[in-house]
Amino acid sequence: MSTPLRSTYPIPVEDLIPAARKLAADLGSTPSRNRVMKEFRIGAEKARTILDALAEPTPEPSPDPVEQWLHAVPDPVEPEHSDADEEMPPAPGEGASSQVTPLVDPAPAAQTAAPEVVPAATPADGKPVRSWPVLLLALPAFVAVWSGWVGLGELTGFGVVHPLPGIADGFTINSAITLPIGVETYAAFALRVWLSGRVPAKARKFAKVSALSALVLGALGQVAYHLLEAAGVTQAPWQITTVVACLPVAVLGMGAALAHLIHAPETACPSENRES
Results as ranks from 00 to 15, higher is better:
residue 32 S to C: 05
residue 61 P to L: 10
residue 228 L to R: 02
residue 174 N to Y: 02
residue 210 S to H: 11
residue 152 L to I: 00
residue 87 E to N: 09
residue 30 T to I: 13
residue 157 G to T: 00
residue 92 P to Q: 06
residue 79 P to Y: 00
residue 77 V to P: 00
residue 130 R to L: 14
residue 120 A to H: 07
residue 91 A to S: 12
residue 203 A to W: 01
residue 61 P to K: 11
residue 161 V to P: 02
residue 1 M to F: 03
residue 250 A to V: 07
residue 94 E to G: 03
residue 6 R to M: 13
residue 112 T to P: 04
residue 166 G to Y: 07
residue 18 P to G: 01
residue 209 V to S: 15
residue 220 L to S: 10
residue 65 P to I: 04
residue 23 L to S: 01
residue 212 L to T: 09
residue 120 A to I: 06
residue 164 L to S: 03
residue 143 V to Y: 13
residue 70 L to F: 09
residue 131 S to T: 14
residue 219 A to D: 01
residue 57 P to E: 09
residue 167 I to D: 08
residue 125 D to F: 09
residue 232 G to D: 04
residue 89 P to C: 01
residue 207 A to P: 05
residue 262 I to H: 02
residue 233 V to F: 07
residue 87 E to G: 05
residue 91 A to Q: 12
residue 144 A to Y: 13
residue 219 A to Q: 04
residue 46 K to N: 15
residue 267 T to N: 12
residue 49 T to G: 11
residue 216 V to K: 13
residue 19 A to S: 12
residue 174 N to Q: 03
residue 30 T to E: 14
residue 22 K to D: 14
residue 138 A to M: 14
residue 210 S to W: 08
residue 161 V to F: 08
residue 46 K to T: 10
residue 118 V to Y: 03
residue 123 P to I: 03
residue 216 V to R: 13
residue 170 G to R: 06
residue 54 L to I: 04
residue 197 G to A: 04
